[in-house]
């Protein structure tokens, strides 16, 4: 029954929504490029100094960088890195944030007060500045790794999920189905996982989709500042950074990774907006 309903929503609502379709199309396009990177692109690490700083051509559709590496290969492989890291961050943040937010909203009292203050502290610090500091600390403590970036961004990113989930749970816990479950003696953990969180999932999915764009921007910003994923691993922000000194002579080094960052953020934002429209409509109907 639930599956049939979900599939009906997808068919009739999501794909009829223009924002959703365009956003989904863009993301699908970038994701496919990333997935097919080993087939459609060359080795992104292969240097060829004879081909240094070559403009876009049939041989190198996006041109080459200062080490003569094919930029198309680097940007397309960069999609894998950026999307994988962004997805990982979003999923971990969502899991942590939803759990903390649900516990905070459901139990209330001193637990809610403590979690609420912790959330306030995190929200008071500018996210990017906090990320920069964390990445720096992790690099010194644990050495250079992609997981430093993931961990640093997760530490700041769970907060928005916790805040939204807490708000939803606060209203859901007063609903009849929750009270009924309590009346028949269901355990709190069962009520939370079985009844409360599934009913809060709509807004969380919207948030997660919109948040993906933010996370991609954060990873790219850290990469641009030289704090994110380190060379030679292809990553959009880091490629953008490497091209900044050549902006007048070889603008393609900055243009194409910039374009892909913009496209992916646009794609996730459009999809998020569209999902919000669809899910809000569904909520209103009920």
């Amino acid at each position: 029954m639930e599956f049939a309903f979900a599939s009906e929503v997808f068919r009739s609502r999501i794909f009829k929504n223009n924002l959703c379709t365009i956003g989904f199309g863009i993301i699908l396009f970038i994701a496919m490029l990333g997935l097919l990177a080993p087939v459609i692109a060359d080795d992104p690490y292969k240097t060829n100094l004879a081909e240094r700083l070559k403009p876009p051509s049939l041989e190198h559709p996006f041109g080459t960088d200062q080490l003569g590496r094919d930029l198309f290969s680097r940007v397309v492989h960069g999609a894998r890195t950026s999307l994988f890291v962004a997805m990982t961050i979003s999923l971990i943040s969502m899991a942590i944030g939803c759990l903390i937010g649900a516990v905070s909203g459901y139990f209330g009292g001193i637990i809610d007060d403590i979690i609420g203050r912790i959330i306030d502290v995190f929200l008071a610090i500018p996210e990017l500045v906090f990320n920069i500091a964390l990445v720096g600390i992790f690099c010194v403590a644990y050495g250079v790794s992609t997981w430093n970036v993931i961990l640093a961004v997760v530490i700041t990113n769970w907060v928005s999920y916790a805040r939204i989930t807490r708000g939803i749970v606060l209203s859901l816990k007063e609903k009849e189905f929750v009270l009924c479950a309590k009346a028949i003696g269901a355990r709190d953990s069962y009520i939370l996982l079985r009844h409360v969180i599934p009913n809060a999932i709509g807004p969380i999915i919207v948030l997660a989709t919109l948040n993906m764009g933010n996370v991609i921007m954060t990873i790219a910003s850290l990469g641009f500042l030289g704090l994110g994923i380190q060379p030679p691993t292809p990553e959009w922000g880091q490629i953008l950074n490497s091209g900044k000194n050549y902006i007048t002579t070889a603008p393609w080094i900055t243009f194409f990774p910039g374009l892909f960052i913009a496209l992916s953020v646009l794609g996730f934002n459009l999809l998020g907006e569209g999902l919000r429209d669809v899910l809000e409509k569904r909520t209103l109907e009920y």
Binding site: G136, C139, V140, V144, Q230, P231, P232
Partner: peptide, 11 residues
């Protein structure tokens, strides 16, 4: 490659 902050590099 380990591209490190100057302090970490020296360490």
């Amino acid at each position: 490659l380990e591209i490190l902050e100057t302090g970490a590099y020296k360490q």
